[in-house]
Design a protein around this nucleic acid. Structure first.
Lengths: 138, 138
DNA sequence: GTTTGAATGAGAATCTTTCGCATTTAGACC
DNA sequence: GGTCTAAATGCGAAAGATTCTCATTCAAAC
């Protein structure tokens, strides 16, 4: 399963790449991880990988469409395994929690706006920041 | 005018802060500048400021609501002088050109989505990426 | 003018990310 | 299975952005 995904993506099925992909697939708890997060978590679970390789592989995965890179934290990128369906994000500025949502109205308006401005839209990023229900109670 | 703006924002009217604010106000050409951009441009026009101060002051301006920080370039922040009216951005991935737009439908949907998810919305960022008209011709 | 806490400047330090290069490995071919 | 070659890896160095430290300077209150 793993190596065929990689081959499909045009990537040689090397051990580090398989390990990182498996790791991303198995860590459903936090789907948004930085390169450093992935690196540390893998070391902790006994997997040997170099940090530079994690960066390289995640960037390759991004180009191959296997993961999406987000910059909603400003100072570093986080990566999310693609599940096929596009979605946007709403983030809690207090606890860092991330929720996902899809809104067809917004999707359509975005396309319309790109068109109106003469742009051929390639991508888009929508982040809503706020205080989540739990943090409002605190 | 300058120093009163700063005082209103709760900032002491120091020379570097006045200079940076003036500079941002006068440089209409490119409204989206990194700290380094501001620093270099000020040096070139003969203004003496330290880079660390530019970073500090821009961050203070952000907290005070005088400027908005954007991370649409991934690896560094750019700042934009606030003109009171909120707007979103559409960027050309080829030439880096940035256009601004406002869309009431999207604004409203965002509020609704935050509510649906139990969030008290504080902010939001929408970036549409694409190829602008000029770059499509090339 | 004097005072004083805040702001600045310059460079060191930190953090994230990339690069360079010697070593290893996946995959093709025998 | 063994051999080959280009591609991938790992490590440390390097780069770029940003923050920190701390001695010096400055704004504004008296």
């Amino acid at each position: 399963m793993e190596s065929s995904d990689l081959k499909k993506a045009g990537l040689k099925a090397t051990l580090p790449r398989i390990k990182i992909l498996n790791f991303l697939e198995s860590s459903g708890r936090d789907r948004h991880m930085s390169a450093e997060d992935v690196y540390k978590a893998m070391l902790e679970s006994g997997e040997e990988v170099g940090l530079a390789t994690v960066y390289r592989v995640l960037t390759q995965f991004e180009s191959a469409g296997l993961v999406t890179r987000h910059n909603f934290e400003g100072d570093h990128s986080v990566f999310e395994l693609n599940d096929g369906e596009h979605h946007d994000h709403i983030l809690c500025v207090k606890c860092g929690r991330v929720e996902e949502f899809v809104d067809e109205v917004i999707e359509q308006r975005q396309h319309a706006i790109a068109k109106e401005n003469g742009f051929a839209m390639t991508d888009h990023a929508l982040y809503i920041y706020g205080v989540c229900g739990d943090c409002q109670k605190k």
